[in-house]
Design a binder for these strands. Structure first.
Length: 860
RNA sequence: GCCGGGAUGGUGGAACUGGCAGACACUCAGGACUUAAAAUCCUGUGCUAGCAAUAGCGUGCGGGUUCAAAUCCCGCUCCCGGCACCA
């Protein structure tokens, strides 16, 4: 019979996934709790079940890890390969609003569809462990984790500037802001201060960075995690603020020249010529990672939203104060988009005030400028225009002096007058008093010591990582389990009252106030205070999409537990995740958030181990034909269903694995699909014929022949290749090895043992085909619970090898020699070769390099 | 700008710690089967010269180390991904 996968794939899927006995022992793909065999927890990122259905990229990633899981099962591991749904979030909420439907229903439809699609590919997920982040039995524990964080002081409410869409009147996540515009309505996004729940991830910053040493992640992932955490040593320097007694020009001059004039006088010897009045108790703390350049500092810049600005106002000349007020207002109103459009053009205002650099005794004018951000360092910087591009641009704009204090390797000591001369690199110090001649790193530590000794400043470790904004003003998320009581204030929902279930309502539209839609549901919002019984209101913000996915791998270990998030003994058995496959888009946030939660849960004794994922690998993506992204608008989306319908699930799986390396970017190519299909047809044709022959001759002892030694050695080698390649996630070359084997040995007369072995070898890749022929061979269900073949007593090492012969580094021929042949033996063989002899004749052999079994090289 | 990763035939891609570059697949060409086409099967397919044996060239570019370099070192170019007025 020809290869018609549609004939049997569906049947096998039904048997695998639907018609199994209730008895867990007979479930093929069930990870067995506390099993004696070594466990292998194979985790793939669970999908967001969108209405569009599964992307071909999902199909590829899950197929690859399915092959990995299947091979390990056959190798004797107790494999857990679970699947679930990360189903809270905006796309579903927006869809529900648009179509006036309940998100719960939409989610159910989408997850059903995803499950159908996954089963259609024959993926060996353990469906008994299915989880759904929107299921109250699941998010009960997401809320429980929040409460534990709250109790430890790691969850707090704070006023934070967030992205705000003035049109939709709602806060939105960074991910929803595309090029400064709100994704949904296209309106430019502004910033607004709102009270937000925050998680103190910064408390774990050191451990999140340091404990990356405990895990096996790709370099790129480790680098971007460390980069995102961004731990650096800074020094905060305190400058006293001073004001010139009489400076009428500042008050009368226009914006720019006012500052410039002041600086010109300031940068001279201010102390002698101008009366500077020390403003009592007023000082500004600037922060820097490059204090070595401090002798080149000529001004100070403060973020417009810095709290000190209000205090400074009192001391500013009236004109400056007016300009400052104006500038602050404009900055606050500026949208993200406007700031992006401004590019590097520097704006700012002079405050009319100065601060004194104790190092140089120079007065430095103080400016407000929006290129300095309140969220970085102390929100105030010291301007070193010679060695920082932004400072230089600012200095140009306001005509401030530039001093070179660092010389690079090229020895250029010239004055810095143009942007391309600004030197931000490391080098040797000059114009810097006691630092002169030191290298940058030496100068940094010397001056830090000095500043600390003099009491002018203090070293501080700072992180790029900031606390996690945990509030969303949306409906479709986990309610934050906090109640606000008029008397008691913030009160956590008692654990026994969890879950706080999302009420089903008619409208999910965001409200006018920017509060969550939940705020409109008074029945739900108004509750009694758990502490005093008085009137109180629920928190109406919900958690971000990241919450449910920050611990889902723990729930898979014990998905139905209603006493705790997962039984400790089961976590001890299954954790950590042995291999976690995922996309590059999650290497910072999801990985960092889930590692944070895991470390916290470990700290409070809930879960074992410091790190959740022993090994992380990052898969590549699938692009459309021509290397462009698959998108609805381009009409180049490949639907996994269509692929399976047209070619069969086994072909779809094998093609997706064969199309390129695991971590590579792959382009869709329909012609190559056909090539893979041809291979499976060929396999089916050859093996089915062998099966039929074996079944006909069953009574005769057809298996008695010893078999062809060369053939069995080739099969044993193929098995080794497949194991190595699959373990190394090299699925493309594993399939290539199978193809190559059939190119070379396809016309062999396979006996029963050989057929069984070959079926096992292809089973992890083409599970339906393998199962079908396994049954035809009269074997017991199922090949997928069979053991991987062993080749005891078969010596796969060759006795003879072909050895290349090089003359002066170029291959001029090959000789066939025993693998253990000595240099003399190989040399003798080489000299007999006609072509080699030609080169050797009359030549003076200076040296012979011989690598046993590998090559021989003559140097003439 | 910083960090990470790349660049190999007409195409996607192979090549363990330096040891026969181009596995496997696609494409293309020729052949078999067919009245014909499709499908299938067989042969060939890095470039140049040659009937051939063989020789020259060849892994983004320019140098270097080595008997030997896609692989190691130095200096570039371009591409992809992430981060970014981070001081």
């Amino acid at each position: 019979m020809p290869y018609e996968p549609t004939r049997f794939e569906k049947q096998w899927q039904e048997k695998w996934f639907e018609k199994f006995d209730k008895d867990a022992e007979s479930k093929l793909y069930h990870g067995r709790d506390f099993d004696q065999r070594p466990k292998k927890y194979v985790l793939v990122e669970f999908p967001y079940p969108s209405g569009a259905g599964m992307h071909i990229g999902h199909a590829r990633n899950y197929s690859m890890m399915d092959t990995y899981a299947r091979l390990h099962r056959m190798l004797g591991y107790n494999v857990m390969y679970p699947m679930g749904w990360d189903a809270f979030g905006l796309p579903t909420e927006n869809f529900a609003i648009k179509h006036k439907r309940k998100p719960q229903e939409v989610t159910q439809e989408n997850t059903d569809n995803f499950e159908r699609q996954l089963k259609k590919l024959g993926l060996s997920f353990d469906w008994d462990r299915k989880i759904d982040t929107t299921d109250p039995d699941y998010y009960k524990w997401t809320q429980w984790i929040f409460l534990q964080l709250y109790k430890k002081g790691l969850a707090y409410k704070d006023e934070m500037p967030i992205n705000w869409c003035p049109k939709c009147k709602t806060g939105c996540a960074n991910e929803e802001v595309i090029d400064g515009n709100h994704e949904r309505c296209g309106e430019p996004v502004t910033r607004k201060k709102l009270k937000q729940w925050m998680l103190k991830i910064t408390e774990y910053a050191d451990r999140l960075a340091d404990e990356l040493d405990l895990v096996d992640y790709p370099d790129s992932v480790v680098a971007s995690q460390r980069n995102w955490i961004g731990r650096k040593e800074w020094i905060d320097i305190v400058y006293p603020i001073v004001r010139p007694e009489i400076q009428p020009e500042i008050q009368s001059d226009s914006k720019n020249s006012g500052g410039a004039e002041a600086v010109k006088s300031a940068s001279g010897s201010v102390n002698e010529e101008t009366e500077m009045k020390q403003l009592e108790n007023l000082e500004i703390t600037v922060s820097t990672t490059r204090p070595d350049t401090n002798f080149g500092a000529t001004f100070v810049v403060i973020a417009p939203e810095h709290p000190i600005v209000e205090k400074l106002m009192k001391y500013m000349p009236p004109k400056s104060a007016d300009q400052a007020k104006d500038y602050i207002k404009k900055t606050a109103e500026k949208t993200e988009k406007e700031r992006l459009e401004e590019g590097r053009k520097k704006t700012g205002v002079f405050t009319g005030l100065f601060c004194k650099n104790p190092l140089t005794q120079k007065a430095m004018p103080i400016y407000l400028a929006d290129f300095v951000m309140m969220t970085v360092g102390t929100g105030a910087v010291v301007g070193v225009p010679g060695h920082d591009m932004r400072d230089f641009e600012f200095a140009q704009e306001f005509d401030l002096p530039v001093i070179r204090v660092v010389v690079g390797d090229n020895g250029d000591k010239s004055e810095i007058a143009k942007a391309d001369q600004v030197f931000e690199g490391e080098g040797r110090m000059m114009n810097s008093d006691f630092l002169d001649g030191l290298k940058t790193d030496e100068a940094i530590s010397k001056i830090m010591d000095y500043i600390e000794k003099e009491g002018w400043g203090k070293r501080t470790i700072r992180y790029h990582l900031r606390d996690w904004i945990f509030s969303r003003q949306h409906y479709w998320g986990e309610p934050i389990p906090i109640i606000f009581c008029d008397k008691c204030g913030e009160v956590p929902v008692p654990e026994e009252d969890l879950p706080v279930v999302l009420p089903e309502v008619d409208s999910y539209e965001p409200t006018d106030t920017g509060e969550s839609p939940l705020a409109n549901i008074s029945d739900w919002v108004n509750v009694k205070c758990p502490k005093c019984g008085g009137s109180a209101q629920r928190e109406t913000d919900t958690m971000p999409n990241w919450a449910g996915s920050s611990w889902y791998f723990l729930r898979y270990c014990d998905p139905d537990n209603d006493k705790c998030l997962a039984d400790k003994k089961l976590l001890d058995y299954w954790m950590p995740v042995d291999i976690y496959d995922g996309g590059a888009e999650h290497t910072t946030l999801h990985l960092l958030y889930s590692r944070f939660w895991h470390k916290f849960l470990n700290d409070i004794g809930v879960v074992p181990g410091k790190e959740p994922y022993a090994k992380r690998r990052v898969h590549g993506i699938v692009l459309g034909e021509g290397g462009v992204k698959m998108s609805k608008s381009l009409g180049n989306v490949i639907n996994p269903d269509d692929l399976v319908n047209e070619y069969g699930a086994d072909t779809a799986r094998c093609y997706l694995m064969f199309m390129g390396p695991y971590d590579g970017t792959c382009e869709w190519n329909t012609r190559t699909v056909k090539g893979v299909r041809r291979f499976l047809e060929k396999f089916y044709r050859i093996i089915e014929a062998a099966v039929e022959k074996i079944m006909k001759g069953k009574d005769q002892n057809s298996d008695s022949s010893q078999g062809d030694r060369k053939l069995i050695v080739a099969i044993a080698k193929l098995s080794d290749t497949i194991i190595d390649d699959v373990k190394g996630l090299k699925f493309n070359t594993a399939i290539a090895a199978l193809m190559k084997f059939f190119n070379e040995f396809g016309d062999s007369d396979f006996d029963k043992t050989e057929v069984e072995i070959l079926l096992k070898l292809i089973a992890p890749f083409a599970p339906h085909l393998a199962e079908e022929l396994w049954e035809k061979l009269g074997n017991e269900y199922s090949i997928h619970s069979a053991d991987w073949p062993e080749f005891k007593g078969i010596d796969t090492s060759e006795d003879e090898v072909e050895i290349p012969v090089q003359i002066n580094g170029k291959v001029r021929g090959t000789v066939v020699a025993a693998i253990k042949a000595t240099e003399d033996e190989v040399r003798a063989l080489a000299e007999k070769d006609e072509n080699i002899a030609k080169y050797l004749q009359g030549a003076d052999v200076k040296k012979v390099i011989f690598v046993p079994g590998k090559m021989i090289s003559f140097v003439l």
